[in-house]
Design a protein around this nucleic acid. Structure first.
Lengths: 226, 226
DNA sequence: CTGGGGTCGATTGCATGCAACATAGACACT
DNA sequence: AGTGTCTATGTTGCATGCAATCGACCCCAG
């Protein structure tokens, strides 16, 4: 990570994903250059990279903004994610190593512990462990293009903070899916792995759609103050 | 297209796709800047964009090159293309307008005429018409992300010049697929459309794999001179 | 009070200068 | 002869200056 452009890129990306720059925020080149201690050149490059990934939108002569997501975007994104994540699971079933499935089983334990209601519940950690869990499957799919496509539909602010919207029942089902996916991969059954994964993604989509429509009706009763 | 970076990007992309810069060719910033009449800055930006699209690979402090494709890449690319193009056809089946299917039927005619052996055969024109044909389906899928993903696995030198490897039988089958796809879309049957499309892509993959292995064995007998 | 035109400020887009890094070649040493 | 190091050279990476463009504000006419 010696290069300035990588520092800027990584930080900016993390900041967008963590909500430091909320949807609609303006991203001035000079401003970011000052904040990161570099000049405008690496900032420009980082912004262009993020534009291609869909994390920022750039209007000619008008600068960069963080795009905001419509319900149609959400539909699109989750349909694609179902398709791609399912394909990755299918490929992984015949390629994954036992040590990988072992680590996945371990992660199931850890995730379930962090999901348990009470003081020990830590949904941010769940998101982190969940990312590692699915990351193993993607890596095992042994398709670089597939991985990068998946990143472009999962490395999004909307998707990253999704666990905070899960009900206890949603969390249980998610964990059950994880267990089943491990079983499918251990069995080397690509169709099984793909099916579970698709169900897993569609369940997540349903949660998000439910949460989104709830937010809309909440906004209707109490107008926001911005 | 007023901006210099767009000019450079478009031209460089076209040159790579047309084989002006063959696989493995080195792309120096200063050299390209001179050739396009601009400075290094827009060239750098264009190269970065092409890197994300997978059309060039950039090594830190070592410059940009046109990547060369391994048989594994080809497998990956066509598997993804089958998946995505199939999904696009499925979505398109319930969204496409009659005027679009009418144009597709027209294109079938034109393509078949250009495929016919003899003096009128024009495979470059086939590639062009074929691109329009499938472009209509993609547009009708009404998913910007899906379209851009598809571009990243079809806008490749390898894929663009694929028709020159088709036998007469391959061409016939391809045309039959096109006709059937139009019928499926007119029927509004997503599953049918997806199935035909997947077959279409897999058939293309088989042609390419056959051609690739033939080239390899040809190289073994007569060493290349570069 | 409202709509149109013009000017000003701020920001992006591009060009260029300088420094850092990587490769290639020569040379000395084993 | 082979290998390791050192240097020379070309390239990329970054910083900054300048011009072009866009948006906002203000002024003025109706």
């Amino acid at each position: 990570m010696a290069r300035a452009v990588d520092r800027v890129y990584t930080r900016l990306r993390a900041d967008i994903l963590d909500g430091v720059h909320p949807a609609g925020a303006r991203l001035g080149e000079a401003e970011l250059a000052g904040a990161t201690g570099s000049s405008r050149t690496p900032v420009r490059e980082a912004l262009r990279r993020l534009e291609v990934e869909g994390l920022v939108e750039i209007l000619p002569h008008r600068g960069a903004r963080v795009p905001d997501w419509t319900p149609e975007d959400l539909e699109e994104i989750y349909d694609l994610r179902m398709l791609l994540e399912g394909a990755a699971a299918r490929r992984a079933a015949t390629r994954i190593e036992p040590e990988d499935t072992a680590r996945m089983a371990e992660l199931c334990e850890l995730i379930e512990r962090c999901c348990a209601p009470g003081g020990a519940q830590d949904l941010d950690r769940v998101a982190e462990l969940n990312a590692e869990f699915h990351g193993i499957v993607r890596t095992a799919s042994a398709s670089g293009r597939l991985v990068s496509m998946l990143n472009s539909v999962t490395q999004l602010p909307l998707v990253m903070r999704t666990f905070h919207r899960y009900s206890p029942g949603d969390l249980d089902r998610s964990c059950a899916h994880h267990r089943e996916l491990v079983a499918a991969l251990r069995a080397g059954d690509g169709t099984w792995a793909e099916s579970v994964t698709r169900a897993h993604v569609l369940a997540a989509k349903a949660v998000l759609l439910r949460a989104a429509s709830a937010e809309v009706s909440a906004e209707e009763t109490s107008p926001r103050n911005d």
